[in-house]
């Protein structure tokens, strides 16, 4: 994030760090005890799913705090329109964790913007551990920045012939100041407060680098995907839990006993 500030602990309790091979690569957000929302391009097909780790309750990338939890990925569901109608269109991924997140003051879910959300005059924030300068400086502490939303017509005007901005996208940026998201913020949330409740309205997706403020950051528009998100959260079975060794032994003993009882009357 360019032009942001260090975030205090517990300020963005839904923020997630997606690690690949032990390094932060993308952001994400907690939307449920088993589910994280992120960008599809963070989970490319050629990546080894077992090399991903998900961290929640994290502020400083160097240290796990008292509330930090670590998770393995069970399943990644990429939106079916990803890269279909636009090189970065449908840039949404639902990540199911292998075990349940324990919520606390520092670890909480964000709400998903519904299709009828009205973003007029909304005050919105982006957060992430992405680059903090065009020279490539990386932060240790989670960064936050308040970013104004930009209408689709203005965003299309600003990008001109470079790229078409699709209806499933949302633009935000400050075309005067250097306040924007950057590489490494991908997958992270753009959230706005409505009536004391924080709604996620965007997922950091793409842009023309982060050096040119004239080109706003482009996010996946969460309200466009909210029905798809809710459908998969409701209809995907929770991950199967491995049986502890003792339970397996007990299970075998019970089945042997049942077999004996069934055979005994025949003797």
């Amino acid at each position: 994030i360019l032009g942001g500030a260090d975030a205090l602990e517990r300020r963005w309790p839904w923020q997630v760090s997606v690690h690949y091979g032990g390094f932060h690569v993308c952001g994400g957000s907690i939307i449920d005890e088993y589910w994280v929302l992120s960008a599809a391009h963070c989970f490319n097909r050629d990546k080894n799913m077992e090399a991903f780790d998900i961290y929640v309750g994290l502020v400083d990338l160097r240290f796990a705090g008292n509330h930090t939890q670590w998770f393995e990925v069970n399943k990644v569901i990429v939106h079916p329109t990803y890269e279909v109608y636009h090189p970065v269109g449908g840039d949404v991924a639902l990540v199911q964790l292998k075990s349940r997140i324990v919520f606390s003051d520092s670890v909480l879910p964000v709400c998903i913007a519904s299709p009828d959300v009205n973003l007029h005059n909304a005050t919105c924030w982006s957060t992430g551990w992405g680059l903090v300068s065009p020279q490539g400086h990386v932060p240790n502490k989670l960064q936050e920045v308040q970013i104004p939303l930009i209408s689709l017509p203005l965003c299309r005007l600003l990008y001109g012939h470079l790229s078409y901005i699709m209806p499933d996208m949302l633009c935000a940026g400050d075309i005067r100041d250097m306040r924007t998201v950057c590489e490494g913020d991908s997958g992270g949330p753009l959230v706005c407060e409505f009536n004391h409740t924080w709604l996620q309205v965007g997922i950091v997706s793409w842009g023309r680098g982060c050096v040119y403020p004239m080109y706003p950051a482009v996010y996946a528009r969460v309200s466009y995907f909210s029905k798809w998100i809710r459908y998969h959260m409701e209809h995907t079975p929770p991950p199967s839990q491995p049986l502890p060794a003792l339970a397996r032994v007990l299970g075998v003993s019970v089945s042997v006993l049942a077999a004996l009882l069934a055979v005994l009357p025949m003797l």
Binding site: R11, P109, C111, P238
Partner: peptide, 27 residues
């Protein structure tokens, strides 16, 4: 549909935790 979980009134899918609320006040 055994795995289907109820949706709370807050819109969160976690039965006991409301979404979008944090426990510190903004500036």
């Amino acid at each position: 549909m055994a795995h289907r979980r109820p949706r709370s009134q807050s819109g969160a899918w976690s039965p006991d935790v409301a979404c979008g609320h944090r426990y510190i006040q903004g500036k």
